[in-house]
Amino acid sequence: MARRGLQEINAGSMADIAFLLLIFFLVTTTMDQDIGILRQLPPPVPDDMEKPPEVKQRNVYEVLVNSNDQLLVEGQRMDIRDLKAGAIEFYTNPSQSPDLPQLTRVSRTVVQDNLNKLRQALSEDPENKEIKDKIETWEDKLIAIELIGDYSELPSSALISLQNDRGTSYDMYISVQNELSAGVNELRNTLSEEKFGVPYSALNTSDDNDKPKIKAIRAVYPQRISEAEPKDLGTN
């Protein structure tokens, strides 16, 4: 008896146990990665809010989608394939068209001047949130100038206004959102490639080196897609 030594534990059933666990995990978990289009909704409008100032027609890129999933962009029928190019044209206004926003050149002196003025105003009224926000945007512009140099800027009121009908299909809505983003992203990528050698999409939001670059590019090409208050555009 003593000569027999220790008996080996049979490991044959180990595989069965592992299989069981494997199958359990296969069943209870999902592979699908959650990706999507991130958007910020506008805060609710209080009833007693005064009417916002009228925005110049040329500063608004109006995109309407009807219940037949047809696009009306700036009063013209448009195919979804052309929307990206349209958005890019709106952002850059290459032909200095009077129907598209007028871009202004931003230079260091102007930004510095404005920042100084705002800081002065803040020192007189340190709790004013509006001034603080303004300082933040101008600081971003300063970062942009330091990293990119002088650039042309969209007027602050310029925006892409998207309006859809209740009967529009979700599919079409996502396509439109996607194409508009694609336009902005393409501009951002080109600029980033030119200035930093990497596309914008490759910049890492959690990397301290990349953060100012992201801010700078966002200051040059802000994503201004606004959704109008819903209303019925009529169904047919």
């Binding site: 958007r39 909704l41 506008p42 979700y170 996502i174």
Partner: peptide
Amino acid sequence: RMGIVTDIKQELREANALKINYSV
């Protein structure tokens, strides 16, 4: 159709849940 989605978005605005994501 977008009708129901718009309604949901309005509810989210009222609830101040402004960060949204369209899963695709």
